[in-house]
Amino acid sequence: MAWFELLFAAEVALGGLLSGVMYALVAIGFVLIYKTSGVLNFAQGSMVLFAALTFVSLVERGVPFWGAVAATLAVMTALGFAIERTVLRPLANRSPMTLFMATLGLSYVIEGAAQLIWGTQVHRLDLGISNAPFQVWGLYLSTFDLVAAGIAAAMVAALTAFFRFTHTGLAFRAVADDQFAALAVGLRLGRIWGTVWTAAGVVALVAGLLWGARLGVQFSLSLIVLKALPVLVLGGFDSILGAIVAGLVIGATEKLAEVYIGPFFGGGIEGWFAYAVALVVLLLRPSGLFGQKIVERY
């Protein structure tokens, strides 16, 4: 009996960890932008919606899978540079809070535009990955979850390598360290920001495809931003590693809490529990688990 219960708890935790990967996937998009421009991009969720909606609409119109991927990437690149041009550049050197509020406005624009262009109906998205459960050591696992985790791991590895070994990655790090110094040595801030937003768009596409296959592609996809925010707060806004670890922590505790604490409150605590966890940790460590300690002045 006790063994069975333990197994059940392990299964719940594992399921939580895997859904935590999905949260982290969204959170990484935020981290990219925050790291290089100090902007908390609230529009990341709507970018996920926009990317997934564009992809699925193209596929439904008969475009082959990789063609649709390429086209969506092109669209996200255009979007990234357009945002840099129309929103970020005019707001250069303004307070981080102003930029945050601008991304709030941006999220309204992108959400509205995505649905105005592609319609508001729910789309089914089939990536051809089976969702059938299989058994390992008595634990039920879903292939889809494992593939999602694999994709997330590959993406993190790619991003880390990109930041460490490429010239553009070095430029990103320079901008993240000190914008003025980066400008002084001749880096083109506009182009770098455009590239960063494009990279965030790519992450949004990956997250959008995986989440879209899970939930269907529709308006509510942009609400995953609300799932990613506590992960960000917990992990620290500027740490990719933090986003992963916090995603896992929040995913696991959320599912365990829903099963073991939830019944005492009548269930449905998923909406705020992640925030509660993040808040408690923050009271002990105000810049998150892996965030840079900075004294903020504004």
Partner: peptide, 17 residues
């Protein structure tokens, strides 16, 4: 204890709770 974005996000806790 918290400033800026960390605080803004934590006020979301009030919203959902």
């Amino acid at each position: 204890r918290l400033r800026g974005f960390y605080l803004a996000v934590s006020t979301l806790a009030a919203q959902f709770f």
